[in-house]
Every structure is written in C-alpha cells, then in structure tokens.
Simulated scan of single mutants.
Amino acid sequence: MTGKPKVQPRGYHHGDLRNALIIAAAELIEESGSLDFAMIDAARRAGVSSAAPYRHFRDKAALLDAVLEFAFFALSQEMDAVTRNQERGSIEAIVALGQAYIRFVTGHPQFYDLMWGDRDKRFVDDVENELRSSGFYLLVATVEAWCQRSGRDGEDALTLSIKLWAMAHGLSGIAMHGHVERFLPQADVYSLLESSTQTFLEGVRRGA
C-alpha cells in the first residue's frame, strides 16, 4: 500500500513491534491475495519469535482487525491528498475523491474482502470509526460544500454521498474484475466516473 512505513526485520524497540507485525501481515495478504496465513508467518516476516505477536494481538482476528484499520487509514490518506489541490465544494473535488477511491480499490484487490466483505469476516465493531477512516465523511463534507455552492442547501448531503459512493464502489468492483474492458473495450473507468458524477449532480442541481 502507498504510504507503507519501512519495516526493519530485526532489532525492534518494543513499541515498534505492533506496527511491524501489521505491515508483515499486510504484505502477506498482498503477496498471496488471501487472508489464509498463520500468526507464525507474520512473525517470520517481521523477523521475530513465534510468541512475539501475542504481546500485542490475542489472535489472528485481532491482527486482521489492525490490518483493516491500516488499510482504511491508507485509503483515507489518499482521498484526503487529492482534495488539497481542488476547490472546495467543486464537482472536480467530488470526482477526484471518487477516482481516488477507484484507484485504491483496484490497486489493492487483495484487501477487498477484508475491507468490504461480510461483517463477520471483517472484524470491525465500530461502524462510525470505519466510515470516518474510509474517507466517507470527507466525501460528505465535500458534497455539503457543493450543495451550498449550487444553491441546493435543502438537499440531504448524506444521501447524495451514499449514491456517489455506490457509483464509485460499483465501478471499482467491475473494473477490478476486468468487466469494464469486456463490455466497453475503449472505456476508461475514471472517465466513466467523471461523466456519471457530472450527469448525476447536474440533475440534482436542476432539481430533477
């Protein structure tokens, strides 16, 4: 994942071990495309004893929970970065967020099931924290600013954001599995998102 901290294989200070194990587990998932690894595999990757992970994680589920938080943090960082050069409340800012979302999902398909799979497989207890860390609330804030700029203060920004999120998520899923090229060989998923977002928001602006 982008922004992944550098991990030294041995000689950790005790406070670094937790992060080193998270990175090790993330690397194992990224390389194998599967969550099917053992705690000892993460320990070996991090260069520590098989007992060391249990100083910070009671079991593999707890380690995966930490990897999940790390993945959502990486996503939120990418989404935050793309808005810094965009005008607040502009359609361009909304499009940039959606494109960053697609870029992250398609760039890290190995984490798709962990981040967006069934709840009992994701080890997440705090939905509010998940939405904040996933960048969703950044999208809501950007949509709220767009509503104000467009004279649509009465619109429900949360509802609009969910629809826009669904659009980006749907395009991410079909792009990740190569279905965009299958049905529209010349299509670009980022251009599709941009045109769909513009059409949708223009309809909202007109009160359609």
Rank of each mutant, 00 (worst) to 15 (best):
A66E: 11
A24P: 15
Y54G: 06
K6D: 12
D126S: 00
R182N: 05
N19P: 07
K4A: 13
D118M: 09
A25N: 06
A141I: 01
L158C: 05
L64S: 11
L171H: 11
A81E: 09
Y112S: 08
E155N: 04
Y112D: 07
I23V: 15
G117D: 02
L131S: 14
V7C: 05
Y190S: 04
K60C: 07
Q99H: 07
I162L: 13
K6N: 14
P5W: 02
L75G: 00
Y101K: 10
A43Y: 05
G33V: 03
E130R: 08
Q198R: 15
L192V: 01
R132S: 02
A62T: 12
T159M: 03
A187V: 02
S196M: 10
A166Q: 13
L139C: 10
A145N: 14
A93D: 00
D36T: 03
R45S: 12
D16E: 15
L63Q: 05
A62G: 12
E202T: 00
T197V: 13
E128I: 01
E78L: 02
P9R: 07
G33C: 00
V180A: 03
D59W: 09
T83A: 08
D36F: 04
G173D: 03
L201D: 00
V180C: 01
A71Y: 02
G15P: 01
A38Q: 13
L171A: 01
E128G: 06
K121R: 15
F183Y: 15
F72N: 07
M39Y: 07
T199Q: 15
R149Q: 13
A71G: 06
V204M: 09
Y112V: 07
L139R: 11
R18F: 02
T142W: 07
V189W: 05
V189S: 02
V82M: 07
Y101M: 08
A42N: 02
H169T: 00
N85L: 03
V67E: 03
E69S: 11
A26I: 02
T83D: 00
S133P: 06
V143Y: 05
W146L: 01
L184A: 12
R206E: 09
S134R: 11
D118T: 10
G15T: 12
Q99R: 12
K60G: 09
Q99E: 06
K163F: 05
R18M: 06
S150C: 12
E92K: 05
D118I: 01
I29M: 09
P185Q: 04
F37P: 14
A51D: 12
D16W: 10
M39T: 10
I162S: 11
R119T: 13
A166T: 11
E92P: 08
E194W: 07
K6G: 12
K163I: 04
G135E: 03
A71L: 10
Q77P: 06
Q110W: 12
L131W: 15
Y54R: 00
S150V: 05
S161T: 10
L35Y: 07
L201S: 03
P53Q: 03
E69H: 14
F73T: 14
E144M: 08
I162D: 09
V48M: 08
D41T: 01
A62I: 04
S191Q: 14
S191D: 14
